[in-house]
Each structure stands twice: as structure tokens, then as C-alpha cells.
């Protein structure tokens, strides 16, 4: 690329230069309206007292809906739940995926078999898996136990029996288990790509210099994975903050496992409080934007160097 393509670009007739734009214009308009336009519309609704239950005229109330959220016990509860879930989910999926990648990255007989199985959960809906996890993470214990609690007893780990997603304290941590189950294959794929993108020469050179296998991993390979880990954190972070169907699939709208997206649904659907619903949604959007926008800019710069 560089100056050659530039001269070609300038030699193109004007018609073909704007021709491209014409073909994507319908999509641009659609995205501008349905993504950005509707976000602005949502922000607008969130600044009013719009509520289908009340007959009052719609008025602008400023940031009242947002300040109300700060003191809304249900909202802070769902936010705290989301934080707990996110921390355990991200760390858990990162470690599991990393271990899977370590086991596979050098190549092993039957690799394709294991890799294919490790990735299939990403193809199934959270709702369908939720039905199963709702069942096997049942809280019954000891004689009445079934599912995972029974399995733990059988292998002599009975003390690990748990209330899972209905327990006062641990519900959100239990919720992270199915989430880790579902996404660690994805993390594995990203790590595998990271490992295998490292030139073999680096490994060989270190080996020639007399480095041991564990030294090679620690000092040569792991530092090279920093961009991969960054990508994984962003991806897991935004999946986690959007958590909705996973939670609904396992435990419905139950208060104990409510997260921000579920609370938004409840405010909108059950209470018909649109102003509050949009305010919650915009908070969620901002949380995700803080993580994703720098990543998009970073990615954009990387593209420019290609």
C-alpha cells in the first residue's frame, strides 16, 4: 500500500469514488437511525417522567431518573450482583480457557476432537442450557440431593454441596459457572490463535540458548500474549455486562440473581416505567462504552498499520 494506491485512487473517475458511497448509503442511514438515533431517543425518554401507568402529561425532569437509580435499592443490588458475576466469570473463563489452550497449543493427537467439543457450547442458546443448569444446580442436599450436589457427594466432595443460584450469598458466583462453561471454548480459541501466532523461531532461539520449557513459557511466550489477553478481557467484559438470557434461563427474574439487564426488563415490562427503563439501559450502555470504545480506537489504529 502507500503512495501507489494513493495515485490509483486519485486517478479514479469521480463517479466510481462516490459510487461506493451510494451503495453503502442505505446501510449507513439505517445504522445511523436505528443505532445512534434510537440511542438519542432513549436518552430523551430517560429525561422525562414517561410512564404508561400514569395519566400525567409528559414532562422533562432532568436527571431525576438517574439520581433516583443511585438511591434505588433494587438497582444498586442488581449492579452489585453484576459486579460479583463479572469478576468471577471473567477470571474463571480466562483461567479455564488458558488451561485448555496450554494443554492443546503444542498439538496433540486428537486435538481436533477435543477442540470441537470444547467449542460447541457457544452454538447453543443460553435459554436452552439454562433449563439444564436450573435443574442440575438444584439446591437439595444430602439424602434429597440430585444433580451436581449428588455428584459431589459421590466423589467424596460432599462438603462442597451448595445452594447454588438460590443461596443468599453465593447466588451470583454460582451463576458464573454456567457462563464459564459456555464461553471458555471461545477463550480457548482466542488463546490458541495467540499462541500459534508467535513465530516458532522465538521458541527455538530460546531453546538454543538453553532455556527450560517453563522458562520459555514464562519469559518468551506469555509476554507475547498481552494483546490476546486484552482482547479476551474486552470480549468477556461486554458479554458479562449484557448478561440477560443466561440469568433468565436459569432463574427467571428472581430478585436474588437480578442483574442490570434483567432489572431493566422488569422496569419496562412489569412496571411499564419507560423513563426508568431507558435510564437503566443508558447506564448499561455507558458502562459498556467505557470498555469498548478505547478498544475500537486501538483496533482502528492497528488496522491502519496493516
Amino acid at each position: 500500500m502507500g503512495c501507489v494506491s494513493k495515485s490509483v485512487k486519485n486517478s479514479r473517475p469521480l463517479s466510481s469514488r462516490i459510487g461506493g458511497l451510494l451503495f453503502v448509503l442505505p446501510s449507513i442511514i439505517t445504522v445511523v437511525i436505528f443505532v445512534y438515533g434510537l440511542i438519542i431517543w432513549s436518552v430523551n425518554v430517560s429525561l422525562t417522567n414517561q410512564n404508561s401507568g400514569s395519566k400525567k402529561a409528559i414532562e422533562y425532569v432532568g436527571l431525576k431518573n438517574y439520581t433516583d437509580l443511585i438511591v434505588d435499592e433494587r438497582f444498586t443490588h442488581s449492579l452489585l450482583n453484576l459486579v460479583k458475576f463479572t469478576v468471577v466469570f471473567i477470571i474463571g473463563a480466562l483461567i479455564t480457557g488458558f488451561i485448555m489452550a496450554l494443554l492443546l497449543e503444542k498439538g496433540i493427537k486428537g486435538e481436533g476432537f477435543f477442540r470441537s467439543f470444547y467449542l460447541y457450547p457457544m452454538a447453543i442458546s443460553f435459554i436452552a442450557m439454562g433449563t439444564v443448569f436450573n435443574w442440575i444446580l438444584n439446591s437439595a442436599r444430602d439424602e434429597e440431593a440430585g444433580g451436581l450436589n449428588l455428584a459431589l457427594q459421590k466423589i467424596g466432595l460432599g462438603f462442597l454441596q451448595n445452594d447454588w443460584y438460590v443461596g443468599e450469598k453465593g447466588a451470583m458466583y454460582a451463576m458464573a459457572l454456567p457462563a464459564i462453561w459456555q464461553t471458555s471454548g471461545y477463550v480457548l480459541a482466542l488463546f490458541l490463535a495467540g499462541f500459534r501466532g508467535i513465530p516458532d523461531d522465538l521458541r527455538e532461539a530460546a531453546r538454543v540458548d538453553g532455556a527450560s520449557e517453563s522458562q520459555i513459557y514464562r519469559h518468551v511466550l506469555f509476554p507475547q500474549l498481552t494483546p490476546t489477553i486484552l482482547t479476551i478481557l474486552i470480549i468477556l467484559g461486554h458479554i458479562s455486562m449484557k448478561a440477560f438470557d443466561l440469568i433468565i434461563g436459569i432463574n427467571g427474574k428472581s430478585y436474588i440473581t437480578q442483574v442490570v439487564a434483567v432489572y431493566m426488563w422488569e422496569a419496562t415490562f412489569d412496571s411499564r416505567n419507560y423513563a426508568k427503563g431507558t435510564a437503566i439501559a443508558i447506564v448499561l450502555l455507558l458502562m459498556i462504552a467505557i470498555v469498548v470504545v478505547p478498544y475500537l480506537r486501538y483496533n482502528n489504529k492497528q488496522q491502519a498499520y496493516r
Binding site: F34, V35, V45, T268, T278, A281, V292
Partner: peptide
């Protein structure tokens, strides 16, 4: 690309 990452709740009510 940003449209790919947004939580759809943010556009859902409109």
C-alpha cells in the same frame, strides 16, 4: 462496529 457491541436494551424501548 460500535453498533455491534451496544447492549440492545439501549435502543429497545424506542
Amino acid at each position: 462496529l460500535f453498533g455491534m457491541f451496544i447492549p440492545y436494551q439501549a435502543i429497545m424501548i424506542p
